[in-house]
């Protein structure tokens, strides 16, 4: 069936409104779209790592989750959900489960690229039938915008502040999607809430209904940390994609597929400019830094084109 956002939004929502995430936050859109890809008859067990998403959606005595939900800690969403999935298999053997249950873990970039990386790698390697979704907002937002290994180079964060000597974070962003592809699991994809959400929805559906482990890395902008105007969310995502800062691709059984090739690759400054976290780069003396970022984006993009057979 052809993708149609309008009909899909008629499906019952599995995360309610009234949660406490900020206006203009990418994460709830990511979650809602991923959950929309579940078949209505399937039940889900959803694990969430400590972070903005968790503290804003499950504040006792309220919950925004209509499926079964568990939060245990920051670094272990993958391990926690892997245990639930093992329970499902064990109880299925003795005829104690009804219907189909899907297992999903959500973690922020901190809970995924950094502190939860080991648990993620372990769970994926063990082959649990689960989907791990990283909502990547490129810093530890819940604790007040500290840098993570996902934070892009020269971004101003509260632990990589732009100062008179050091212009923000000094390292490039870790390429987690490639690292997960190297796990040789059945499905890995990089996506974002782009345009009518088709790319994200379809990848979520594939991830959920491909047997075995799957990993989705989803760009999820944060207006507080990135310092853009809240209504600009979708525009920021579009610019990340059109500049090739965040390419959309998937890796199915080891085969790389590019899902979107900008007709007109935009210069990276178009993406950086509307974001306050890069404001300090737009001075005469920091021009070289912008060139450096552009070079690295080009290098990674060209490599991806090669991997996808598009070079």
């Amino acid at each position: 069936m052809a993708y149609n956002l309008k009909t899909l939004t008629e499906k019952e929502e599995r995360i309610t409104g009234g949660h406490r995430m900020c206006a203009g936050c990418g994460a709830p859109i990511v979650v809602r779209t991923v959950l929309r890809a579940l078949k209505p008859e399937d039940h889900a067990v959803i694990g969430v790592a400590t972070g903005c998403l968790e503290v804003s959606t499950c504040l006792y005595p309220y919950t925004a989750w209509k499926d079964s939900f568990i939060h245990s800690a920051f670094e272990n969403a993958a391990a926690t959900v892997s245990g639930a999935e093992a329970a499902y298999r064990a109880l299925a053997k003795v005829g104690k489960v009804k219907g189909t249950t899907k297992f999903i873990a959500f973690g922020g970039d901190g809970g995924t690229y950094d502190i939860g990386f080991q648990a993620l790698s372990g769970a994926m390697e063990r082959g649990h039938d689960m989907v791990y979704v990283c909502y990547d907002n490129e810093a530890y937002m819940n604790t007040g915008i500290q840098r993570s290994s996902s934070t892009p180079k020269y971004a101003d964060t509260t632990t990589s502040p732009a100062g008179s000597e050091i212009p923000g974070k000094v390292q490039f962003k870790k390429d987690l999607t490639m690292i997960m592809a190297a796990h040789n699991i059945p499905y890995v994809a990089q996506t974002a809430p782009f345009r009518n959400l088709k790319d994200l929805y379809e990848k979520a559906e594939k991830a959920l209904y491909t047997p075995g482990p799957a990993f989705l890395n989803v760009l999820a902008p944060c207006p507080r940390g990135w310092r853009y105007n809240t209504p600009q969310l979708m525009e920021i995502v579009r610019l990340a994609i059109e500049t090739c800062v965040w390419p959309l691709y998937e890796v199915i059984e080891g085969k790389f597929i590019l899902n979107y090739k900008p007709k007109n690759k935009l210069p990276v400054v178009e993406y950086l400019k509307p974001q306050g976290r890069f404001r300090h780069l737009f001075t005469k003396e920091n021009e070289g830094l912008l060139d450096e970022i552009q070079k690295e984006v080009d290098r990674r993009w060209n490599r991806l084109l090669e991997l996808c057979g598009e070079a």
């Binding site: 694990g47 245990s72 892997s82 245990g83 639930a84 499902y88 390697e125």
Partner: peptide, 26 residues
Amino acid sequence: VHTEFVAVESEHSAMSACIGAEAAGA
């Protein structure tokens, strides 16, 4: 036994997986 044995990658994950499993009714 009918047990699912999860050979985790650390004890932190061992207890985390136990939590997930027990929470799932196992």
